[in-house]
């Protein structure tokens, strides 16, 4: 989109704390337009906080897809996706859309839904959808924002690896720039140009993907098991522990 020398995001010695707890400390990070950045690291490392910080820097250019996807349960998938485009519609039009879907919005959202594999579920309320389907709706809402930067917080964690990769690829193709928190190093290496690994509120590693191997990431930095599905069902506590063995234990307990 814009020129490469103008960074999309720039953090210089950024810190953030909630009360006593230091969430981010001394972050230096510059992200240029056109970059696709994967954020890795254990739960509680500060990835979501960093993402929020980035969002606040460029709220007008970003489509956000947060972890607890913030959908409205009783509304249909269609209306939840439409919410991404509320700022492009007048208030009367938005209100009327609750009664009868607006023709143009409907065409656009149907297209998005088809690409996300939601075609038949579009008119169901999201409380009747599975976890994976809800993630697709949340992605739909982000896509319908039609922004050039995508900020995702584990946007495909409830999908199986193959679907996760296909959908992630689709979302990346629709945005010039992206910063996405992930659990899966495999996905990070396959689809992103740059990997940032966080640990305890600091950046541990920040390198172009081509200089990294899966082994690097697994052995040194990543604590969660690669497959996203397994990571999801692990109890919250065990995903914070730092040795790979602990994760195996977690698996057995399950």
């Amino acid at each position: 989109m814009s020129a490469n020398h103008q960074p999309a995001f720039q953090l210089t010695n950024a810190s953030l704390s909630y009360g006593q707890a230091q969430v981010l400390q001394h972050i230096h990070l510059t992200i240029h337009d056109g970059e696709k950045v994967a954020l890795l690291g254990p739960s509680g490392a500060g990835k979501s906080s960093l993402l929020n910080l980035l969002y606040q820097q460029r709220a007008d250019r970003c489509a956000l897809c947060p972890q607890d996807n913030g959908l409205v349960d009783i509304l249909s998938a269609y209306h939840n996706i439409f919410m991404g485009g509320l700022d492009r519609h007048s208030t009367p039009a938005s209100l009327w859309n609750l009664v009868r879907p607006l023709k143009r919005a409907r065409t656009a959202i149907e297209a998005i839904a088809t690409q996300l594999g939601l075609g038949t579920e579009l008119w169901k309320s999201v409380d009747r959808l599975s976890g994976g389907q809800r993630q697709r709706v949340a992605l739909g809402r982000a896509l319908f924002r039609k922004k050039d930067i995508f900020l995702g917080d584990e946007p495909v964690s409830a999908l199986d690896p193959i679907q996760a990769e296909t959908l992630m690829q689709h979302v990346l193709s629709q945005h010039a720039t992206a910063v996405v928190c992930l659990h899966s190093p495999v996905l990070a290496l396959a689809l992103f140009d740059r990997v940032v690994v966080m640990k305890a509120g600091s950046i541990e590693l920040d390198q172009p993907t081509r200089q990294l191997t899966l082994a690097d990431l697994n052995s040194n930095y990543i604590t969660d098991v690669p497959a996203d599905r397994t990571a999801l069902v692990l109890p919250e506590k065990s995903s914070v522990v730092s040795s790979p063995e602990a994760c195996v234990t977690g698996k057995i307990q399950r």
Partner: peptide, 24 residues
């Protein structure tokens, strides 16, 4: 507590978020 940073405000928030969530 279910807030997200890009939630709409004003009437849109009332119609799309709060009312559907509180309706039950």
């Amino acid at each position: 507590q279910r807030h997200r940073l890009d939630d709409p405000a004003g009437i849109a928030r009332y119609a799309y978020l709060e009312t559907p969530r509180q309706l039950p």
